[in-house]
């Protein structure tokens, strides 16, 4: 196994010895990961490898059986019941983008982005709307503000979801297969936004099957299989010269189809 190359700053996300099982079905075994500030970490691997579970454990959408999670200084120990204040603080530090967008269908696009700011950050409606419009403009979606999400394409919905998460000023953005539910052409719009976000220095953890993104944008590549990390390091190096047989098999399957 290759040791992670620390590129910048202190870690924003630290995961230590994460483990989780459903009965006898082990989903995660002893996963440790550190994400330096301003870096992009891409997680790849066959489905069922536990990539999404690691990501979902990071903001406690999924409760690990044991291990430790720290985001932006807010530490949660999986063994004990999390203190609600600490959990809220940890979640505020992490923005999450889902495979299926999970926008609120009964609210306009603008309200989708503004409501969390009002409720979680206590911003006034005007402040929140101003911030929302600024983000929508950045996403090229200012004209969609008063529409309902159902009137937007998948790619637009995912960009709205990114804006909704960004509006809370997270220290790290967690992406759970953000383009898997999209047509390839539409997925490109989303990947463009993510690239731009990476350029602005946002810390990102991305579970993805987009090898080009993993190779070109990520600073660190994490390969998972069977609930564990089997390889991590510089993306170019891993994609060119994988050390682990399982990685080779996976890369052959995705790259040579």
């Amino acid at each position: 196994m290759i040791e992670p190359t620390i590129r910048t700053g202190t870690p924003v996300v630290q995961v230590k010895n994460l483990a989780k099982a459903y009965g006898s079905n082990v989903v995660l075994r002893d996963v440790s990961l550190s994400v330096p500030e301003g870096s992009v970490t891409a997680m790849i691997g066959p489905s069922g490898a536990g990539k999404s579970t690691v990501l979902r454990c990071m903001n406690l959408l999924e409760q690990p059986d044991s291990g430790e999670i720290e985001i932006d200084g807010h530490r949660i120990n999986a063994g004990r019941k999390p203190n609600p204040k600490n959990l809220a603080a940890l979640r505020r530090s992490a923005g999450m983008v889902f495979q299926h967008f999970n926008l609120f269908p009964h609210m306009t696009v603008l309200k989708n982005i503004s409501l969390p700011q009002e409720r979680v950050l206590g911003r006034s409606r005007d402040e929140a709307n101003e911030k929302s419009m600024e983000l929508l403009k950045r996403m090229g979606l200012a004209d969609k503000a008063d529409q309902y999400p159902s009137r937007c394409s998948g790619g637009q919905q995912q960009r709205i979801a990114i804006a909704r998460a960004l509006a809370l000023g997270p220290r790290v953005m967690l992406f759970d297969e953000p383009t898997s539910a999209l047509d390839p052409e539409v997925g490109v719009e989303v990947l463009e936004v993510m690239k731009e976000l990476a350029c602005t220095g946002m810390t990102m953890v991305v579970v993805t099957h987009e090898m080009a993104f993993a190779g070109n944008v990520a600073d660190e590549l994490v390969v998972m299989a069977d609930g564990g990390i089997i390889e991590k390091g510089e993306p170019g190096q891993i994609l060119q010269d994988p050390q682990h047989e399982r990685t080779r098999r996976f890369l052959r399957a995705v790259l040579e189809r």
Binding site: R91, G95, H100, N102, P116, L168
Partner: peptide
């Protein structure tokens, strides 16, 4: 859909907010 609960949790809404809004 489960995603509505998950998005609400990830955004950090309080339980009362999730139910009422």
């Amino acid at each position: 859909p489960k995603g509505q609960w998950e998005a609400s949790s990830a955004l950090g809404f309080h339980r009362a907010t999730v139910w009422s809004l």
